[in-house]
Design a protein around this nucleic acid. Structure first.
Lengths: 203, 203
DNA sequence: AAAACGTTTTAAACGTCGTTTAAAACGAAA
DNA sequence: TTTCGTTTTAAACGACGTTTAAAACGTTTT
C-alpha cells in the first residue's frame, strides 16, 4: 500500500522528466520503466495506457503552473500593474520550466482533435474578468479601445514564443545558456512596456 | 528511370502531407507507403531512413516558404514599409500553410541538438541587412533605439504564435475556421501597427 | 532475338515499440 | 497459518522502423 503510492509516483516523476525532455512520442515505456526502476507492465497497471499517463501529467503540469497566473488575472489590481505582474510572473515561471512551452505547443498540435476535452488547457487562456477589465477601461477612456482577444494573443505571443524558438535564437546570436537567460530577463521589462504603450491614449 | 523519379516524388508528397497533419513521430512508414502506393522498403531505398526523409522534407518546406521573406528583409524598402510588407506576406504565407508553425515548433524541440546542422532553419531568422537598417534608422533619430534581437523576436512572436495556439483560440472564442481566418486577417494590420508604434519617436 | 547489365521493386525477417495475460509474490485480516 | 485482495512479474501479441536477398524490369550489347 505504501509501496503502491510510491510506485505510482516513481512512474509519474520519471515519465514527466522524459516527456518534457524528449517529447511523448520519443519516450518509450521501457525507458520510463528503467528510469523509475519498475516493471514494464506497471505503467499500464497504474495508468491504463501511455496516452492516459501523458494526459495525467499534462493536466498536472498545466494546473500547477497556471494557478498563480489566473489568480493575477482575476485579482483587482489596476490594469497596467496587472499586465506588468502577469508578464513578469509568466516569464519567470517559464524560465524555471523552459521546456514547458515546447511541450504544450507539441500537445496543441499532436492532440488537436482532443483539445476541447482537455479542460486543463483552458486555464492557459484569458479569464472573463480580465476581458471585462480591458473593455471597461476603454469605455472609461483610460486606454485606447482594443480587441481583448487580439490583446491577449499579443501578450501570450510575446511571453511564450521566445521560449519555443530558444534554440534558434541561441544559434543565430551565439548565445550561451546564461546569455539567453539574460535575454529573457530583459523581456520582463520590454514586453509590458510594449503592451502598455499600445494601450496608452497619449497619441 | 521515369518510374524512379515518380516513385521518389510519390513518397515525398505522401510523407509531407502526413508529417504536417499528424507529426513525424505519429506517422508510420507503412502509412506513407500505403498513401504513396509503393512498397514498404522503397522509403528506405530512396531516402535511407525515415529521419532522413523528414530532414529532406523539412529543408524543402522551409526553403520554399522563406525565400520571399528573406527577399523582403534584404530589399531596400523604407523600414516601416518593409515591416508592414514582411508581416503581411508572412501571415499570408502561414494562412496558406496553417500547419507549418506547429511543424517547425515540434522540430525545434524534437531535434534541438541538431539545430546547428540544419542550415535551412537559419533562413527563418533576421538577416544582417535588416538588423543594420534598424540600427541605422535609430542612429539617424528616425526611430526609437531598440535592440534588433528583441525587435525581431517580438515580430516573429506576434506573427507566428497565434498559429501555434490556433486550436486554443478557436476553442475559447467559439471560432469557426472562417472566423479564425478573419481573426488572422485582422492581424495583418494590427501587428505592423503595434510594432511601428513602438518604434515611432513621437513620445 | 537473346544474353548481360544495372536499376527498381518485392516479400520476408529482424529487434523494438505499446499493450495484454496469467501466474507469482506480497501484506493484512481471519 | 490460511485466506484473500493487492501488487509485481515474465512472456507473449501485433505494429513499428529497418535490412536482406532475390525477383522483376528496362537498356545495352552481342
Amino acid at each position: 500500500m505504501a509501496r503502491s503510492r510510491n510506485t505510482e509516483k516513481k512512474i509519474f516523476d520519471a515519465a514527466t522528466e522524459l516527456f518534457l525532455e524528449k517529447g511523448v512520442d520519443r519516450t518509450s515505456v521501457r525507458e520510463i520503466a528503467n528510469k523509475a526502476e519498475i516493471n514494464l507492465a506497471l505503467m499500464n497497471y497504474y495508468f491504463r495506457s501511455k496516452e492516459n499517463l501523458f494526459d495525467t501529467i499534462f493536466s498536472s503540469l498545466v494546473k500547477k503552473n497556471s494557478e498563480e497566473l489566473i489568480r493575477i488575472l482575476n485579482s483587482d489590481l489596476e490594469l497596467f500593474e496587472k499586465i506588468e505582474q502577469y508578464v513578469e510572473v509568466y516569464i519567470e515561471m517559464l524560465s524555471e520550466n523552459p521546456l514547458l512551452v515546447s511541450f504544450v505547443m507539441a500537445i496543441l498540435h499532436r492532440s488537436r482533435e482532443r483539445i476541447t476535452e482537455m479542460k486543463a488547457i483552458s486555464s492557459l487562456y484569458a479569464t472573463d474578468q480580465f476581458t471585462k477589465q480591458l473593455l471597461d477601461e476603454a469605455k472609461k477612456g483610460n486606454i485606447r479601445r482594443t480587441d481583448p482577444t487580439h490583446f491577449f494573443v499579443d501578450m501570450l505571443s510575446l511571453i511564450a514564443f521566445p521560449f519555443a524558438i530558444k534554440m534558434l535564437v541561441m544559434d543565430k546570436n551565439n548565445f550561451s545558456e546564461a546569455e539567453f537567460q539574460e535575454f529573457i530577463d530583459e523581456r520582463k521589462k520590454r514586453v509590458p512596456k510594449l503592451l502598455l504603450d499600445s494601450l496608452r491614449p497619449c497619441k
